[in-house]
């Protein structure tokens, strides 16, 4: 899994470049290269390093790499003190993890609490939003767009694109939307095509895995929202 480059929602915000957490399969440079290679974005970027240790030469490499793709490294977020020191030495704006992700630290996960990322705005065709915990999207997922999460996928809007819950293999993950009309649904390793007929208007629905197949039910009012 490559690093995720998440576009800023407003012109005065930073784009967010998030390094993958957990298993390391490539260097940070390769991860970032993968993420920016095909990207259109230009402008200032905040780098979310999580627990990666990036020393000064690494950060400088990343800075140059981003610059070649028209992006400017403006800010570094990290849980690792070594990385913050390096960022400070380069004169970059730096700080701890982002507020939405602070809850997603290891401690929270081990306590059985799902971390939740809130994303505001509609995902349009070609966009892909991936988060590590659960995701709450305030907006629509348009046809051709993808939303994926290791936990639950909650869409406060119309889900008409592709959704993947439980990317990491969590078979209890669910997909909930105010209007569930996806092209395709995936939960863990199960795949289902979206329903052909139009869903009943004004009825939120959820998809969950029952006996290895994806089933769509009216959304349960007692939905266990992640804390």
């Amino acid at each position: 899994m490559a690093a995720a480059l998440i576009p800023a929602l407003a012109p005065d915000q930073l784009h967010l470049l998030r390094l993958p957490q957990g298993e390391r399969v490539a260097s940070a440079q390769e991860e970032v290269h993968q993420a920016v290679r095909q990207s259109f974005l230009q402008g200032a970027v905040g780098l979310e390093c999580g627990d990666w240790l990036l020393r000064l030469p690494d950060l400088r490499d990343l800075q140059n790499l981003l610059q070649r793709h028209g992006l400017e490294l403006r800010r570094v977020h990290s849980l690792c003190p070594g990385t913050l020191v390096a960022a400070a030495a380069l004169g970059l704006d730096h700080g701890g993890s982002l507020p939405v992700n602070r809850a997603s630290g290891k401690a929270a996960t081990s306590a059985g609490v799902d971390p939740l990322t809130v994303h505001r705005g509609t995902l349009r065709s070609g966009d892909h939003l991936h988060v590590e915990g659960s995701v709450l999207l305030l907006g629509d997922v348009n046809p051709g767009a993808r939303i994926s999460a290791e936990g639950h996928v909650l869409v406060w809007g119309r889900l008409r694109g592709m959704a993947h819950a439980g990317c990491g293999g969590d078979r209890s993950a669910r997909i909930v939307a105010l209007q569930l009309r996806p092209l395709q649904l995936r939960i863990a390793d199960a795949v289902a095509r979206g329903p052909e007929e139009r869903p009943p208007a004004g009825l939120a629905e959820e998809a969950l895995l029952v006996d290895g197949t994806i089933r769509i039910d009216p959304a349960s009012p007692s939905w266990p929202l992640p804390q």
């Binding site: 349009r124 065709s125 070609g126 966009d127 348009n142 051709g144």
Partner: peptide, 19 residues
């Protein structure tokens, strides 16, 4: 048409990113 609307949607996303 579905294809034209899909492509327009993509373009709108890119225009938004460019402000």
């Amino acid at each position: 048409e579905v294809s034209a609307v899909r492509d327009a949607d993509r373009v709108i996303g890119l225009l938004n990113v460019q402000g």
